[in-house]
Design a protein around this nucleic acid. Sequence first.
DNA 1: CCAGACGTTGTT
DNA 2: GTCTGG
DNA 3: CCAGACGTTGTT
DNA 4: GTCTGG
Length: 232
Amino acid sequence: MCVRYTLHKTDAALGAISRALGEPLEVPDWAPRYNITLTDFAPVVARSGAAAAVRLMRWGLVPENERANPRPRLLANARAETVASLPAFRRAAAGRRCLVPANGFYEWLSRGTAKLPYLFTLRGEEPFALAGIWDPASDGLPETYCLLTTAPNEVMAPVHDRMPVILTAETMPRWIGDQPLAPGELVALTRPIDPGLMESRPLGRYVSNSRNQGPACLDGPDAPREGEFNFG
DNA sequence: CCAGACGTTGTT
DNA sequence: GTCTGG
DNA sequence: CCAGACGTTGTT
DNA sequence: GTCTGG
């Protein structure tokens, strides 16, 4: 499950997407955040008609049967293997595929009882896009989005058995769109990214609390924490 | 993922 | 609201 | 036709 | 211990 990511270099991430699409994108009024999680609003690049545009959407799709619920269950992820056929995702997968700009994402390694956070990025801090689908606003809900997951690659596998679908400059323009994908194209686009393009490193526990939203989320395990004394 | 709650009825 | 299973 | 579901992950 | 909200 991918339930946390960071978008702290928004200009760079949107710039990379803009170049990949060959279309201009406006940077939204949005402060950098290092710990985006379910229910947060974040920039999403989606097509509305011909043009791609950036909109702030809320993370967490709400299936139809939950729409009347004042506290609906939110869907953070959709499996790439099943997204095209499941009722909750099918429509969005066919006609509302979006790009979710990111600079990195987090996963937790379960070691015994402990959960150790790791940061996953592209080499050289290359910005990227996560593959998403989105639902329009309705029933008093804002526009919402959801991230696709796929099998882990070699970088991911030691930490976690699923990973988000990461799109490159080559795959971004193929993924985004409001028309159904050709058969096989969805499969091709949601394959695990080349592990040679990725890197990971362990982090301190600060990021684990989703209330923490600042740059200290990227601190390593040995970084001093606020509110603690350093001895020696 | 973590943090925080974990409950109902009748009444004001 | 809409699809699926019975 | 109606009833019931509509989702993922982790963990064991 | 487990579920829910964020």
